[in-house]
Design a protein around this nucleic acid. Sequence first.
DNA 1: ATCAACATGTAGATGTTCTATATATAGAGC
DNA 2: GCTCTATATATAGAACATCTACATGTTGAT
Lengths: 105, 105
Amino acid sequence: MRGHIDGMVLATVEHEPLHGYAILESLTRRSGGALDLPTGTIYPALRRLEKSGFLASEWSTVGGRKRRTYRLTEAGRRALADERTSWRDLSGVVEALLRPQPGPA
Amino acid sequence: MRGHIDGMVLATVEHEPLHGYAILESLTRRSGGALDLPTGTIYPALRRLEKSGFLASEWSTVGGRKRRTYRLTEAGRRALADERTSWRDLSGVVEALLRPQPGPA
DNA sequence: ATCAACATGTAGATGTTCTATATATAGAGC
DNA sequence: GCTCTATATATAGAACATCTACATGTTGAT
């Protein structure tokens, strides 16, 4: 999954802000269990994305538990669009190169 | 491209053995120039794949230049099949998670 | 002679992700 | 009261692929 996590995280908070644990659950659920990230992956990723200016966070307390809720910034919205474009490019290339060559008939 | 290079290299030598530089050219040509690996990527990758038993190499001299030609081993053939399967899985997941969520109508 | 293309290779830096560990609360089951 | 699971966040260090930069040598064209 290397390199694709950032885009998937940004896409997850595209329409509603979520806290880290909820993002984790959403990714697992929407992938049908195929993607099951450890917390040691998601939290550093969120901090990296915030540091890059793609996410902004806010603390709150819900039911006695502290939550850090992340929302997509304008720059994040542009980054997500870029991720989608570069995913299309990447997957086209990989698909083409992985495909068995036609014999030199 | 991280993580996908191995599969693309294996696919390149699937039907005919090639030397490193020729593999590089083939990848660039077949990707329409989108993939232009530096030699510092391809040669270590080939050694890694040989060490893993997926490629076997043989030296030859053509036109005064030394070439190391790589061919796919049986294990390499299986590894390539695995790469193709896991690419399909991966791309399905990324596609699904990158896609904009349907509104909670 | 010089330069581009051919051909292989190593060393070190970079950056993402994983493993392992740490902390703390809420609620269920016993 | 105790324990376990789920919720919630976080860091340190290891692993690993890839990139940058460097190093070397040949062939053929200008």
